[in-house]
Amino acid sequence: MPVSEQERPLAGNAGEVFLAFLKLGLTSFGGPIAHLGYFRDEFVTRRRWLDEAGYADLVALCQFLPGPASSQVGFALGLMRAGPLGALAAWTAFTLPSALLLVLFAYGAAALEGGFAQGVLHGLKLVAVAIVAQAVFGMARSLTPDRERAGIAVLAIFVVVLAGGAMGQVGAILLGGLAGLWLCRGAPTMAAESHLHALPRRAGIMALVLFALLLVGLPLIGGAGPGLALFDGFYRAGALVFGGGHVVLPLLEAETVGRGLVTPDAFLAGYGAAQAVPGPLFTFAAYLGAIGLAPPNGIGGAAIALVAIFLPGLLLVVGALPFWTQLRRWPQAQAGMRGANAAVVGLLGAALYDPVFTSAVLTPLDFALALAGFVALVAWKAPSWSVVLALGLAGGLLVL
């Protein structure tokens, strides 16, 4: 009798996943789009945990879901590699470094000031340019190999540019999938990733039910205590935001500054510090939970806020993956996914220009440094952490 997906042995272990994501948690600067580039370099190109199409499938799925897309992709990679413990290891290792740094900042750690530190921060923005450019270059070669899919990628760029925001991103992927049903039916059938761990549908349904119960139930019981009220506010912020990253800031401001838990100056100072640390921007919640003017605050408040803001997005990933795995095997669904994957290339291409390139490349020398980082990654196969160190140091030295 063939071994079912649920019985298939795992391809890795939680320790392996933890160490891989810890390196990324310490070195992944540049925001969610850059993180997706780091992930692709580490897990598709170097470690070969999955292929290009499988990775693009995960990116497309997580772009559809509310929550922090890069953290959701990392959580899913850990889940498929080493099961639930692998998922927890991936999230913990990728999230904790930046969360701990922001909590230290909340307790009075010195903010990055002065010319050298600001130069380092600018160098890290140039790293993001190189990383995202590498991701677009590599994914375009494998996911847009023909005129039809290249055209879908260009269409996606237009949709993102004209519509803007999270709705533009979701709309681009949706239109890409519809175009794929029409234009990509004749492409070769994708092979399923037989080495990936699959969740049973029952687990997915339970996760979706828990997501809905918390979203509806927490506001009803939030008055039972300040801890529950804090958890409710951050859970709602994580559950209702599409696009992740900076998109969540207005919701966080409403839940903290708007409720008198954090002063406007403290909020802005923490947001500035969040730009200086690696990992997901959602860890800004740990700072807000720690700096709160009313209990629970400190370490307890940081832990509540951090778990609450990530939990809804992770529950949605668990809920969607069992059905996504089955869906992508159907010929019609595969045609749609080819179009959606091409749209992801366009989405990343649009993000490479704005905000990544426009916010980082301000002078011809900036362009030269970003290009050097790109060449180091693509032609010299340099590890991403070495490019982070080199461009960060170069940015600091240039202002002296």
Rank of each mutant, 00 (worst) to 15 (best):
T283A: 02
A308E: 00
A302H: 05
A335D: 10
L321Y: 04
A320M: 12
A333M: 14
A286M: 12
I299R: 10
G339F: 14
A308S: 14
A343T: 07
A290I: 09
R338D: 04
P280A: 05
P331N: 08
L293D: 14
A290K: 05
T283Y: 03
L321A: 03
A276R: 12
A333N: 04
Q326G: 15
A290G: 08
P278I: 04
A320V: 04
I309Y: 05
A320D: 04
F282Q: 02
F323W: 15
I304W: 03
L314S: 01
A303F: 14
P312E: 00
G289V: 13
A305Y: 04
Q332I: 10
Y287S: 07
A343H: 07
G339E: 10
R329E: 15
F284Y: 15
G300M: 08
P331T: 09
G300L: 15
Q326A: 14
A285F: 11
G289N: 08
V318H: 03
A333E: 03
A320C: 14
N341W: 00
A302S: 11
W330R: 15
A302K: 03
M337Y: 10
A303C: 11
Q332W: 15
G319C: 02
G289H: 07
I299W: 14
L316I: 10
P296Q: 03
F323S: 09
A308V: 10
G292I: 11
M337I: 12
F284M: 13
A342I: 11
L288R: 04
V317Q: 00
A333P: 13
G292V: 09
A286F: 06
F282H: 07
P280C: 06
R338F: 13
Q332E: 12
A286K: 09
G292T: 06
L311E: 06
V277R: 07
N341C: 15
V307M: 11
R338Q: 13
L321F: 04
R328A: 01
P280Y: 06
L315V: 06
L321W: 02
F284D: 07
L311I: 06
W330C: 04
I291K: 13
I299E: 12
A343D: 10
L311Y: 08
L288Y: 09
Y287P: 08
W330P: 03
F310I: 02
A286N: 13
G298V: 08
L321P: 06
G289W: 10
L288H: 08
I309Q: 04
G301D: 02
L316F: 08
G300P: 05
P278G: 11
A308F: 06
P295W: 01
G339K: 05
V317W: 00
L327V: 14
G298H: 09
L315A: 06
Y287G: 00
P322G: 10
T283G: 03
M337N: 01
A333C: 15
L321K: 06
G319M: 05
L293M: 13
R329V: 11
